[in-house]
Design a binder for these strands. Structure first.
Lengths: 406, 406
DNA sequence: AGACTTAATGAATCGTTCC
DNA sequence: TGGAACGATTCATTAAGTC
């Protein structure tokens, strides 16, 4: 995104709106005479919106105290209702620091559903008629959230997949790597004239329409808020690049963005940087304080810089399986090395079989030669029109196909 | 996948299990005296499963007529409940051939939910205790399906994103390109010991864990079934590569795979090619007939192309004592860890001794490192010709001896 | 200083068998 | 049926430590 923080000349590449040497926002707010998280204690409807503030308290009560039809966009990162068993250890026996906070504990699906219905209904009330909502979740909760949201009259526009560049692996080898989270983008109702900056996104995406699958890294490194002890302040802090893409695509400068599960304030930080107003609701004082300090350090971007974030591109990795799936190499056919000394059979799952042994092109290539390692791509060949062709040739072909497809 | 069809020498590149010049399966079934879609008309429970057949009729009734706990895997591609307003036109004013079939019409979410609950419940009944279910859908329906599935007691294992290599663009530029569909993989219950071929998938993916986001092309070209008029036979035919990945990852050769929304039979075609049995349920005779003809033309792959690969988890257990008894590791010799930090002595009874402590290779390995647990097989090594060799190598040797002995 | 090695970590519904 | 023993299992990235 290229947002810069105050007081730093370094790190021109990283998105960075966090951490600074400036005083916490709390102190600065008092100096300006702004109310400080006093909002939920007030009775009745306030005269005006508590803009660019973090209110501590229950988000449903706080939303119900706001005037109706006053917010342009809601971004929500609710508890996921993870249902963890015991401890999980990595193969090196270190312990995984899981999300086991009280705020993510629900007794049943019914309880989670009631919670979800309550905050979604409150959010719908404060949304302007043409407003829209984004929610992020995982397979634990997103299906329930999506169904309830439809029941309440929201009109689904897209589901968006955040493909994580560096997800946590599956340590026990019992499932697929859980490498994505899902966002739902929904208008307040079927008739809502929602905001969507199609052209801006297309321009930032090599003039291709922005797809529903977004490839972005996790929030780590300097962007990740850490306490004095070096521990992460919030277990599920979202990357600013994700929020930037949401706000750039679905809101206008000056729009009011409400986040009912503000956490450490990624939504607020990005909103400030991009010239949007925010209302942050957060139950935990610790998170709210961290968010205030973080947002205070954000330097708003100049309006010209509000262009769409370019998509991150990396050299696509082609697994051998995809060649089998596309039929470039066929399941059941024989691969052979250049000197025709070793043979193996291609299996439908993209592994090779040599005698009783089954493994990757690399493993089986190594086994054939009695070597510890082997590059299967250059070692194995297939016969095409009486000539041997390296399977690496097919990989190159697949790669250029992929490049064409974007 | 590289599956070839009968009677064709052409098209060496495309995956192809469809279309042929052979007579339709219906005629061939009669010739063989096999029952033809008579199943739903029968009263009571059939004596045996209608394997490798397509039954025409309502899938809920058909499933309820099957014996309970008889199916290993269910793959379902239910109606998506698409809600298109009027006609959709491309920028050049040509009409998009949208899904507007009667079978995709539901009066309300409530009606769709009732339908979904009915078929999911029937599917759960026919599943074996360790069985699993896959469902595919889009944002129109998948959230409802996912929530209901959780309510019925299915245990979600992953949500999988099928990233389309060549999705239909959003012609009006009002949303993100809808470039993916979602699959849910769920076990019948929380305690189910579901099938997952972790090693096979990893082997086909450059020795990296398979992720939850799959990049695959749409079903087009020769694979797409077309009628005499050149029009597609079914509006939502799924690619065979998608089904192949599902069946290879989550079923074994010989398993029974039931598809309650069989359509033109992609599930059956791929199941036959990969040595699985199938039961296809389809309401529309036209689709069922097309599916039968298609599947009849499928040439199964050679068993070695899809046979289940042995994994460490399935291989016979070798006690460390047997290595000592066979002399592969000698009583009295020293075992050492890879970094030469810990040593222990092998005892004649197959235990290790470290100082005063005596115990299994695992216990002593854990003790040496001060950890709660340890895999002694991979932790301990012995010296052979000035090099460290893992004792796991000797276990593999013992296993292949065992295999030779039968 | 720079190259290389080692360590740490991220929203995770992450065993099976035998006694 | 509960407890103990066996034994299978990680990728991308950042940051710190070592040569």
């Amino acid at each position: 995104m290229g947002i810069s923080r105050t007081g730093t000349a370094s790190a021109p590449v990283r998105i960075q709106v966090s951490r600074t040497g400036r005083p916490a926002l709390g102190a600065r707010m008092k100096a300006k005479g702004l109310p400080n998280h006093s909002f939920p204690d007030q009775i009745g409807v306030p005269r005006e919106l508590p803009l660019d503030q973090v209110l501590v308290g229950d988000c449903v009560a706080a939303m119900n105290a706001l005037p109706p039809a006053s917010v342009d966009l809601v971004f929500a990162d609710p508890p996921y209702n993870l249902q963890l068993g015991g401890d999980l250890r990595r193969p090196d026996d270190s312990l995984v620091d899981a999300v086991d906070d009280d705020w993510d504990k629900f007794a049943s699906f019914a309880e989670y559903d009631a919670f979800t219905r309550a905050w979604l209904q409150a959010a719908r009330r404060v949304l302007k008629p043409d407003g829209a909502l984004w929610v992020i979740g995982s397979y634990h909760n997103i299906f329930r959230v999506g169904a309830i949201l439809q029941d309440l009259g929201f009109w689904m526009l897209n589901d968006i997949v955040w493909r994580k560049a560096n997800p946590m692996p599956n340590f026990r080898g019992r499932r697929f790597t859980n490498a994505h989270e899902t966002l739902i983008w929904a208008a307040r109702g079927e008739q809502s004239k929602y905001t969507f900056h199609y052209e801006a996104l297309k321009g930032g995406n090599d003039d291709l329409q922005m797809r529903s699958d977004w490839y972005l890294p996790l929030c780590t490194g300097e962007e990740r808020l850490k306490g004095a002890d070096g521990a992460k302040v919030h277990p599920t802090q979202k990357p600013e690049a994700l929020l930037a893409r949401v706000l750039l695509s679905a809101s206008n400068p000056g729009d009011v963005v409400l986040d009912p599960f503000f956490g450490t304030g990624t939504t607020g930080a990005v909103a400030k940087a991009l010239g949007r107003r925010f209302i942050g609701l957060e139950r935990e004082t610790v998170y709210a304080e961290a968010a205030r300090a973080r947002i205070a350090a954000v330097q708003p971007l100049s309006p010209e810089a509000f262009a769409a974030a370019p998509s991150k591109r990396t050299e696509p990795r082609i697994p051998f399986l995809s060649l089998v799936e596309s039929g470039l190499v066929k399941a059941g056919e024989t691969v052979i090395d250049e000197k025709r000394r070793h043979k193996a059979v291609v299996r439908a799952d993209g592994t090779l079989m040599l005698g009783p042994a089954i493994g990757s092109i690399h493993k089986v290539g190594a086994l054939a030669q009695g070597l510890p390692a082997c590059n299967g791509w250059t070692f194995w060949h297939v016969e095409r029109e009486d000539k041997l062709v390296s399977i690496d040739v097919f990989r190159s072909a697949a790669r250029s196909e992929l490049a064409k497809a974007g």
